[in-house]
C-alpha cells in the first residue's frame, strides 16, 4: 500500500526530473527558435570556453603548489599532445606524486 511518504517521494521525483529536463532541453528550445545575429553568434562561440573557465576557477582557489603545478602540466600536455587521456593522466599522476613526495 502506498503511504503518504510514497506520494511525497513520487511528487519530489517527478518535479525534480521536470526541473532537470527543463534546463537540459530549454536552451535548445530557445536557441532553435531565434535567428542568431552575428553578435549572438559571437556570444555562443565564446560561451563554452567561458563556462569551462567558470567551472575551473573556484576549484583552484585556495589550492597549493601541487595542484597549480599539475594544472599547468595538464595544460601543456593537452596543448602538445591534443589527447584528453594523456592530459588527464599527466594531471592526476602529477598531483598525486607532488602531494605524496614534494608538498606533503
Amino acid at each position: 500500500m502506498l503511504e503518504n511518504q510514497d506520494y511525497q517521494f513520487a511528487a519530489a521525483i517527478v518535479l525534480m526530473t521536470a526541473a532537470t529536463y527543463f534546463t537540459r532541453a530549454g536552451g535548445l528550445f530557445i536557441i532553435s527558435r531565434v535567428t542568431p545575429s552575428p553578435r549572438i553568434r559571437a556570444f555562443l562561440d565564446h560561451m563554452p570556453a567561458s563556462i569551462l573557465v567558470a567551472i575551473i576557477v573556484p576549484t583552484l582557489t585556495g589550492k597549493g603548489p601541487a595542484e597549480l603545478i599539475s594544472a599547468g602540466a595538464t595544460m601543456l600536455a593537452a596543448l602538445y599532445t591534443r589527447s584528453l587521456i594523456i592530459a588527464m593522466l599527466t594531471g592526476i599522476i602529477s598531483v598525486s606524486m607532488l602531494r605524496a613526495l614534494v608538498f606533503t
Binding site: P48, L52, I56, A78, A87
Partner: peptide, 14 residues
Amino acid sequence: FAFTIVFIALLTFF
C-alpha cells in the same frame, strides 16, 4: 582533483 584536471584539459583544446 580529477574533475578540475579534465575541465582544464578540455579548456586547453579551446
